[in-house]
Structures are given as structure tokens and as C-alpha cells.
Design a protein around this nucleic acid. Sequence first.
DNA 1: CACAATCTACTAATAAATTAGTTGACTCCA
DNA 2: TGGAGTCAACTAATTTATTAGTAGATTGTG
Lengths: 131, 131
Amino acid sequence: MPRPKTPDLTTAEQRIMDVLWTRGEASVRDVADALKDKHDLAYTTVMTTMKIMADKGYLSFRKEGRAHIYAPKLSRHGARRSALAGLVSSLFDGSPRHLAQHLVEDEKLTLEDIDALRAELIKRQSQGEDT
Amino acid sequence: MPRPKTPDLTTAEQRIMDVLWTRGEASVRDVADALKDKHDLAYTTVMTTMKIMADKGYLSFRKEGRAHIYAPKLSRHGARRSALAGLVSSLFDGSPRHLAQHLVEDEKLTLEDIDALRAELIKRQSQGEDT
DNA sequence: CACAATCTACTAATAAATTAGTTGACTCCA
DNA sequence: TGGAGTCAACTAATTTATTAGTAGATTGTG
């Protein structure tokens, strides 16, 4: 078996997804222009990548005049969820709690952060009490 | 610019790292045997990958008789930290809190988990009070 | 209608990642 | 001491990912 497909978004795909998540939908031209400052890629480069992403099922598109208008089929939330799930299973023994613990140990979370999480969880529990 | 180097551990590298993190150090033979059940790779495959990992600086090795004994230069904790940092910056606007919030929203953390985090944080704060 | 602009499709080059075969050296016993 | 086994080095094949060039179609405007 040779090189396997990357399970999550590659960096080039990530850049494009960010634009699409922000705009909702966009043409190749839109995306290339939006990325121009940080990554001055050739128009065809962006197009090729977006076509591959469509092939992978990450994007849908519709024709509008001569151009294709692309839209993300994968939501930002979905991407976050699957990336997190992958990280948890590969490096944190499948335990999300373990991951959170690590953030605390590395001082990435403050007491205020944790209290906010707690409040959010309680709010959710009381809302979904009888569903 | 062609395909860029993968910033974090690839899946093949991950498999090998898991063995080394568990054992502390191991020969190619040890690793190949340990992976035999889940991934029956050729001895040379494991060797090639480990050599590449040594080139990348992920592993060190010493000679013991005819064999090379490899040891991880990157700790499990370090790998977790850098993988988390990458994920936070690429998908969570650079906010670890945002990531934790996501775990709550997706019901990956229970109230007990959060309280344990809270306790851990407070313990750490009181310990490192005057360093 | 002709020309310029623009867009897609096709092609291509390059490096990384994964897997494994071959070769040559070294070692361990019988 | 000579054959069997083991190990590292080298080579190689294959696919993904990233970037971009070329060609051909289409469209809007003067």
C-alpha cells in the first residue's frame, strides 16, 4: 500500500475552506482573490485544488453563467468534530477528557474558561431535559 | 512549491511512536513484532520508516551489537502539545477555550469531567503559587 | 463580427509518504 | 570453517498533495 489519503483537510484545502465557510459560497476567482494577500497562488492552482475537493466530496458547485460557484458540503462544525475525534483517538487514548486535562496542564485554560464550560454544560442539560 | 512536509506525525510514524513511547526504546525487530497483529508490515518497511524518522529528528539511536536501538526524541506530551496547538490554530481561531467549548457542545465532556478539570487547575495554581 | 478577457479542462512537474525487494556484511553455531 | 540467519543500506514502485502552464470554449463589447 502506498501513500494513503489524508483523512482530514490538508493545509491547502483548509485555506480554501476558510474562505468558503466565511462567504457561504464563492467562485474560484473569489477564493483566489481572497487568498491573494497571504498566499499568492495562480488562479489555476486554486481551481485545481477546488476541483479535487469537489471530487473528494468536500465541495458542491453550481453553474452561474460561465463560472462555477462552489459551496462547502462539510461544515466548519463538522470539520472541527472530525478533526477532534481523530486527534483524540490517535493521541489521547480515545478520551476527550484526557485531551481537556492536557489543556489544563499546559495552562491553555483559565479558571474562567472552565467555569464558562461548566455553565454552558448545565444550560444545555436543563434545556435538553426532556427530549 | 510541491507537497509540503507533514507538520505532525503521519499515521505510519504514529504507530511506531506508540511502541517507542510504551517501551522507552526498541530495535526495528521489536517494533515490527509489536505491530505484527494490527499491521503486518515487512521488516524493511518498518526499518525504512524508522530511519526516516531518525532523519527528521523524531528518533535517536545507538548501536548495540549488530542492531540499532531507537528511542523517541519527541515525548508523548510534546507530540500532544504540538498536535493540539496545530489544531487550535488551524480550526479554532487560535482559542483553546473555543476547542473545549466544542467538546462540551458535542457532549464529549460530562459534568464530572469538568469538575475534575477545575480541581486539577486549582491544585496546580496553589502548588505553583510562589515559584 | 472580431477581439480581448475569462473560465474550465487537461496536462505536467515535483516532493512527500508508504510499502517492500535486493544486496552485502556480519554473526552464530554445528 | 562454512552455511543459515539477521541486520542495515540502497533501491524502487506507487499514490497523494501542491503548484502551475497550455489549450480551447465562451462571452461581452466596440
